[in-house]
Amino acid sequence: MATVTSPRRAPGGAGVMPDTPGWARWANDHRKWLFAAPAMAFVAALIVIPLGWTVWLSLTDAEGSVRAESEFIGFRNYLDVLSDTDRFWPAVGRTATFTLIALAFEVVLGMAVALLLWRPFKGQKWVRVAILLPLVATPVAVGMMWRLIFDPNIGLANQVLGRFGVGPQPWLTGQNSALYTTIFIDVWQWTPMVVLILLAGLTSLSEEPQEAARIDGASSWQRFRHVTLPLLMPTVIVAILLRGIDALKTFDILYATKGKGGGSFHEVETLNVYAYGLSFDYNEYGVSSTVLILFFLIIVGSMWALTARRRKEAKR
């Protein structure tokens, strides 16, 4: 009876015959990278090419049109922008204020709502749907809606306040109140996103630490502080990163509510709104590219700072 021999395999079980050419062996060993390479190259091109073009424009005096002849001026734009105390640095301050306050409220409110939705109760699915409704609308539509609500003359907000004997408020028209009003709008729309992320993290937690703490007599606050929050911290950091970067880049709500320049007195002009105005209102492409590169560095630096603690813990 003939003996059936199985094909010989290369060491490690890779399934490659010993007489396979060297390039085929290399391709088999690196197949996971080769399959992903086209997609990775495409994504890299989408990032590197626009970023490189923006860096080049920031080093020129391009204005009027990006196709017009421009002269290489080195870092002159950067020196001019960084010494601009009238528009650039106030825009940096507004961007930081908007991001930090909005992010703080969204994380705290998102955590509170996620904890309320963590345990099952009657009508829970309808409550979840209602909470997530603000995410359905586009930011421009949300901005226009709240612009009508906060209208100082016909807006619903002042009409409600009037029923309680409170005089009309400027809301979006006031120099001191406009930025905080837009922060409220951002919190209203994007807190559900934080709720969604944190609720997913809560549902993935094991019940055993909670039960052990409950048996030991820990109160609800003690269980949250010493058990739930430490276990949930990686998810909280993810929520802060995603929402923080998005808040830094906020543009549509601000432009929909205040228009060009962030208002007549630039009261809600963040870096995004400032760069947009330089590009499309004044056609100063070299300066606007400089602002965008500096903004990009601020975002990267913020991401690095937010993840610094996690990197230290990972090294331990």
Rank of each mutant, 00 (worst) to 15 (best):
T270G: 02
R243L: 02
G263R: 05
P170W: 10
F98M: 13
I47W: 08
L297S: 01
G167Y: 05
V194N: 10
P152N: 09
V195R: 14
V140W: 12
R243M: 06
L179W: 08
V92S: 01
E211V: 11
R316A: 12
V16I: 15
N158I: 09
T203K: 14
M111A: 13
Q124A: 15
S58L: 07
T60K: 01
R67F: 15
L292S: 10
F42N: 03
S279T: 14
S83C: 01
T250K: 01
V129T: 15
L278M: 10
P18T: 04
N283S: 09
A141Y: 11
F296C: 02
L34F: 15
F42P: 05
A2W: 11
A96M: 11
Q169F: 06
A130G: 06
G93C: 06
A275Q: 05
T182V: 15
Q189K: 14
L294S: 04
P90N: 01
G74K: 14
W33C: 06
A314Y: 03
G261C: 06
T235E: 08
V160S: 00
G52R: 13
A130T: 06
L34V: 14
L306Y: 12
T182D: 02
E207L: 10
Q222I: 03
M233E: 10
T97I: 12
M40Y: 11
G64T: 07
D186G: 04
V268G: 00
A213Y: 06
W89Q: 02
D19A: 14
M1T: 05
V136S: 05
V66N: 05
G12P: 12
V113E: 06
A45P: 02
S70C: 07
R119N: 08
S65L: 10
W33R: 07
P50I: 14
V92A: 03
H30R: 10
S279H: 07
M40H: 02
I293S: 00
V140P: 03
V142I: 14
F105Y: 11
V113I: 15
A96K: 02
R310F: 12
A305V: 15
K315C: 07
T228P: 01
N77K: 08
T203F: 07
T250M: 08
G262Q: 07
P21T: 09
N176P: 00
G277H: 05
L205P: 05
R309E: 12
V166P: 03
Q124S: 13
A212H: 05
S288M: 09
P234H: 11
E313V: 13
M111S: 12
L179N: 06
P11S: 12
A102Y: 07
A200R: 14
S58P: 06
E208P: 04
A213F: 04
L202S: 09
V160Y: 03
A36D: 03
P234A: 10
T270V: 15
L196P: 11
T138W: 07
G286Q: 08
T290P: 01
V300A: 14
N176K: 05
R147Q: 13
G217R: 04
T203A: 14
I185Q: 04
P90W: 02
D216C: 02
Y255Q: 01
L34A: 15
E208Q: 14
L117H: 02
L57E: 09
T257N: 03
K249T: 05
L196N: 08
F184Q: 00
S264V: 04
T54S: 15
A157I: 11
V127W: 12
L294G: 04
R87L: 10
I298D: 00
A213H: 07
P134D: 02
F88Y: 11
T173A: 08
W221E: 00
